[in-house]
Design a protein around this nucleic acid. Structure first.
Lengths: 271, 271
DNA sequence: GTTGCCGGCTTACATAGGTTAAGGTGCGGC
DNA sequence: GCCGCACCTTAACCTATGTAAGCCGGCAAC
C-alpha cells in the first residue's frame, strides 16, 4: 500500500529518461507531465509483476532498482535486465498482454503505476510519443542483444567490466551518477544470475577487478576508479545504448558534481 | 542485383507472419499487399545490412535464412537471432536509425526491400498495423530474452534442444514445416556462435541428441523424431513466442502434410 | 544482550566445455 | 578426374567455472 502524494518529480523521472533517447517537444513534455500516476512503495525482493499476469497498468520506476527475470525448470534464475529510475520495464504489456517473465524489486522501490488506457490515449494524440515509447522498447532490446553477446562470448572478467560500464552510463544519462560514483544495490548472487555465473565466481572476479584498480566500493556506493581501463577490460562500446550525445550533460555541470566527487579527478566527460 | 518480378507471394509472406502474431483486418491485409517492394537475391554469407549503417529501407525476408550478429573485440562472433521468411529483421531501423549489429544471409536469400517512407505512411494511416509492427519487434525481444536464459543458465544439451524446438515452432507457424520436417540450413559453426559454444562441442552434443532419437536429419532437412522428449530435454515452453493459438493451422490440414511426412506418426498438433 | 539470518568471502575439489590438431567426406570448378 | 574448400568428426589435453561446505561480520528482532 503506502500511497504517497504524486509530485512533479515522478513525471520528471520519465521525461528525463525519454529525453535521454529521443528529442521531446514542449507539448510532449506537458503531455507526459499530465499522465495520471498511482504511487506505491515496494519493499525489496518483491515482485512488481509476475510471469503469467496480464496487467492493465505499466510501472514507472521512480526510485530503487528493478530486475527482469525468469525462473527456469531446474530452479535456476536468469536475470535479463536491470532497470533504473525513469524506466518503464513493462511498457511492452501495452502490445503483448501476458507477461512472459517477472519484474522484481532488487532494492526498495517507489513505483508509479500508469493505466494502459492513459498511455494508449497518449500515443494516439501524440505520435511523437508513440515513436519515443516504441524507441524505448527498442533500446531495451538493443541492450538485451549486448547482454547476449556478453554472456555468449565474453569471459567472466569481461562480462563484469562490461556490466559496470553499462550501468554507469545509464545512470549517468538520467542524472543518477555523481562523477564516477553511483549506487548499484545488487548482491553477488544477483550479479551471478544476471551474468550466467555462480556467486562464487562472481566473488573471485569482483575481487580481481577491485585489486586491479578498475572499480572500488565503499559499502553502498560503487566508484569507477579507472574508466578507460574498465572500458577496455569489458570490450565496452556504448553505441548500443543509443543515448543522445549530450544525455545527462545537464545534470553534470562542473558545480553540480564537484561537491561530492571524492575519488580521483573524475571528469564528467565520458571518453 | 538480380531483380526479380514482384508477385503476390512476397506480400503474402509478410501477411502470414503478422497474422501469426496479431489479428489483421481485411483493410490491413490490403494495405500490406500494396506495399512497394524491391526484390533482390542475396548469396549465402553476404550481409544484408551491417553494423554502423543507417538504412532507409527495411528487409523483408522472402526466402532463405538470415542471422543477426555482432563481431566482438577479439574476433569472436555472437549470433543473436535467426530470421525466417516473413520476418523483417531490421524493422527497428524505423525508430533507431543506426544499426548496432549486422544481418547476414546464412543461406541464399530472396529479400524484398521496403522504403522506410512507405512503412511510416502505413503506420500513420493504419494504427492497427502500427500496433502489429510494434508487437513484432516486441516478440523479437521476447525471443531474445529466452535466448539469454538459454545461454545464461542451460547446459549445451538443453540449449540445442530448446533451439530446435523454437525454430520448428516458428517455421510451423508460417507454414514452412511439413509435419515434423523442415529445413534449417545452418552450419555447426553458426550454431556455436548462436549458442555461445565451440563448434567441436556443438558436434559432440548434436550427435548425442541424434543418438538419443530426438532429432534426425537427412542432409538438407531436419526431422523432429520425438517432439515431446525434445521439448522436455530443452525445458521448452512456447509461450514466449506469443503466437496466436491457431498460428499455422491453415497450412497444416491433414491432407496437406500427409504427403511428405516420413518419420513417426507425426501429428500436426503441437502438444 | 543474545539470537538468527543474510551477504560477503574462502577453500577444496569436480566437470562442462574450450583448444588445438588432424583426418574424413562431399561437392563445385576446372 | 582431380583439386581445393567447406564442413563434419574425432581425439588428447587443458582451464574456466561450478559445487559444496563452511566462516565471519553486521544488523534486525526479540
Amino acid at each position: 500500500m503506502n500511497s504517497l502524494p504524486a509530485t512533479a518529480t515522478e513525471h520528471e523521472r520519465l521525461i528525463r529518461k525519454l529525453a535521454s533517447i529521443a528529442v521531446l517537444t514542449a507539448a510532449e513534455r506537458d503531455a507526459l507531465a499530465g499522465l495520471p500516476l498511482r504511487l506505491r512503495s515496494i519493499p525489496e525482493n518483491t515482485d512488481l509483476v509476475h510471469e503469467g499476469e496480464t496487467p492493465s497498468e505499466c510501472c514507472l520506476i521512480v526510485e530503487g532498482f528493478v530486475g527482469r527475470y525468469k525462473l527456469l525448470g531446474q530452479g535456476q534464475r536468469q536475470i535479463m535486465s536491470f532497470h533504473i529510475p525513469g524506466d518503464i520495464p513493462d511498457l511492452h504489456t501495452l502490445q503483448i498482454r501476458v507477461m512472459d517473465h517477472s519484474l522484481g524489486a532488487l532494492a526498495p522501490c517507489r513505483v508509479a503505476y500508469i493505466p494502459h488506457a492513459a498511455l494508449t490515449d497518449l500515443v494516439r494524440t501524440h505520435p511523437g510519443l508513440c515513436t519515443a515509447l516504441w524507441r524505448d522498447t527498442l533500446v531495451d532490446a538493443a541492450i538485451l542483444r549486448e547482454w547476449l553477446a556478453n554472456i555468449g562470448r565474453r569471459n567472466a572478467h569481461q562480462r563484469l567490466a562490461h556490466l559496470y560500464c553499462e550501468i554507469y552510463m545509464r545512470l549517468h544519462a538520467v542524472g543518477l551518477a555523481e562523477g564516477r560514483r553511483f549506487v548499484f544495490p545488487v548482491t553477488q548472487a544477483e550479479l551471478g544470475d544476471a551474468q550466467g555465473l555462480s556467486t562464487v565466481h562472481i566473488n573471485r572476479v569482483l575481487q580481481d577487478i577491485r585489486r586491479d584498480g578498475l572499480i572500488a566500493s565503499d559499502g553502498t556506493e560503487t566508484v569507477i576508479s579507472d574508466w578507460l581501463r574498465l572500458q577496455a577490460a569489458g570490450d565496452f562500446e556504448p553505441e548500443y545504448l543509443h543515448l543522445r550525445p549530450d544525455a545527462g550533460a545537464e545534470f553534470h555541470t562542473r558545480s553540480a558534481i564537484s561537491a561530492r566527487v571524492v575519488v580521483g579527478r573524475a571528469s564528467p566527460t565520458l571518453t
